[in-house]
Computed example of a mutant assay.
Amino acid sequence: MKKLNLLLSICIITLVSACGGSTNQSEESSDPETEESSDPEIKLYVFEVGDILVKDISLFNPGVDTGQTKNFTNSAYLIRHPKGDLIWDTGLPDALAQAPDGNDSQAFLMKMPKTLSAQLEEINVSPTDIEFLAVSHLHGDHTGNMNLFTSATLLLQSEEYEGLFEGETVAPAVDSLRNNEFVKLTGDHDVFGDGSVVIKRAPGHTAGHQVLYVNLPETGPIVLSGDLYHFTKNRELRGVPAFNADKEQTLKSMDSVEAFLKEQSAVLWIQHDKEQNEGIAHSPEFHK
Rank of each mutant, 00 (worst) to 15 (best):
S22T: 15
N234L: 03
V267G: 01
G167L: 03
D188C: 09
A259V: 07
G226T: 00
E258A: 03
L148D: 07
D104L: 12
H189Q: 13
L96P: 00
S136E: 02
H81E: 08
T143V: 06
A134E: 03
P241G: 02
Q276E: 00
E278V: 08
D129P: 04
F165P: 00
E166W: 05
E27M: 14
P32C: 13
K247A: 08
S117R: 10
G187Q: 15
D194E: 10
T73S: 07
S256A: 09
H189S: 13
S58C: 04
T250S: 06
K252F: 10
H230M: 03
A99Q: 12
D273M: 01
L154P: 02
S38F: 14
L120H: 02
F108K: 03
S30N: 08
I57K: 14
V197W: 08
N215Y: 08
L261C: 01
T143Y: 03
P100W: 15
L6P: 00
E278Q: 11
M110H: 07
E121L: 09
H142G: 01
V135H: 05
K274L: 05
T186G: 15
N124R: 11
G195C: 11
K252E: 12
H287K: 12
K3H: 13
N61A: 05
T150M: 14
P62M: 10
P32D: 13
S265V: 07
L268K: 03
F192N: 06
D190G: 10
L224P: 00
L164D: 05
G144Q: 05
L7P: 00
M254S: 01
F231N: 00
N234E: 04
D273F: 02
